[in-house]
Design a protein around this nucleic acid. Structure first.
Lengths: 229, 229
DNA sequence: ACCTGAACACCGTTCAAGT
DNA sequence: ACCTGAACACCGTTCAAGT
């Protein structure tokens, strides 16, 4: 389970092995010592290819961010942003440690190019369909849904395997009579109640449709104020 | 800076000191050894009042969750949920380490009473105004906005003090010509562009209003399907 | 140029021994 | 019943010494 290849150590190989280690063993399985062992080398050698652990973490986060799709010009702004968000969510699901890293970066100084490029793209597409004011808040709403929903989802982490255990334990701790709504909700998760609607996309559409509607308040004006500076 | 009081050590005092330590020094400043020192005791003594560090963390998370307001019966469902969400966001802002803890709990087995009580309450109020299907997804959208927005906000952590530094460093790393939208957005943050609208509440209203509108699709029916099982 | 042994300053936790 | 010293198995990181 170590010393797979004998090719020379490079930053690229170090990052690749680190990503693999985090993917299979979880975030806390990734230590400099274990990573070194995986590469058939002592932990201290890694510092020849990586400044420190923070640099390493930013490096593997970058690999995940690069997996996220940036749709081309042919797609309308809302569809393009929707596609990107779905793809970002999928990438974070493939690497469950990455979202926590994106939200709590080891160093605030270390800003990745890909992060700025994605932000620039998102703002540009938002401005295609929205006012300055709505684009400003729309970015916040969109970004916080992508990372927020993913983190929330991961923390509950209901998978096909553990869902039975989780429900059983819940029912043991909290009798159904005292918490009927919660009991019902857990049951709905078990029976695949919401399977026809993806939960991530449901919230995403609430946001995107809401933004679009606020931009065109001509039909049935509502109390909410329009995009005023 | 230690041995403030000589009263006997209790679980309550341990949790209180731990919360204070995390509040002022950040999450990583909270170690069993430092906490012991703060209480004028060796780290090992803490294990007489707390099962382990995970138990300690769940304990201080509980204190924060208990700060969140649960509005009474007199308020309409949407206003009540809005008030709770705003209060939850405020509590997490007062204790910036707590939201990360809520989303990445030390142990998935350890479910707090207050968490179930809040979930039961939220589901009940959602059902007052929404179908079963919308309440199911509404809970996910609402919860993920509360924790998600807060985490996103904390990760950017733009405060009155550091906002100048952040902007200056950004401009040094990423020239304005290459990233005009992002530059504009950063500038808007600096000039308080969005100060008239709270960013958390903006996203919250997109979700709550969207949920309500989907429940009453009689006016101007849209393509989105109604709350069908 | 790259790797390593030894060392440092930290962690959480256990357990026998003290009072 | 509560506290502690010593110890264990871990961390990230530095640095002089090796090749």
């Amino acid at each position: 389970m170590a010393k797979k290849t004998r090719s020379p150590l490079t930053r690229e190989r170090v990052l690749g092995a680190a990503l693999a280690l985090a993917d299979e063993g979880g975030f806390e399985a990734l230590s400099m010592r274990k990573l070194g062992h995986e590469l058939g080398v002592e932990a201290m050698s890694l510092y020849n290819h990586v400044a420190n652990k923070g640099d390493l973490l930013h490096g593997i986060l970058e690999l995940v961010l690069l997996e996220m799709e940036i749709p081309g010009e042919g797609v309308r702004w809302k569809a393009a942003l929707r596609k990107h968000a779905v793809s970002a969510h999928a990438a974070y699901r493939r690497h469950p440690w990455a979202c926590r890293l994106a939200v709590a970066p080891p160093s605030l100084d270390h800003v990745l190019d890909v992060q700025i490029r994605q932000m620039e793209w998102k703002l540009g597409r938002l401005r295609e369909g929205l006012s300055e004011h709505l684009a400003y808040h729309g970015l916040h709403a969109l970004d916080s849904h992508i990372t927020g929903f993913t983190l929330w989802e991961l923390s509950h982490n209901i998978t096909a395997e553990n869902v039975g255990d989780l429900a059983a334990r819940f029912l043991r701790l909290f009798p159904a009579d005292d918490y009927p709504r919660t009991y019902e909700h857990v049951e709905q998760h078990l029976t695949g109640f919401g399977r026809d609607t993806d939960a991530f996309e449901f919230g995403l559409d609430l946001i995107l449709d809401g933004l679009e509607r606020q931009h065109e308040p001509q039909t049935r004006p509502r109390k909410r104020r329009t995009a005023a500076r």
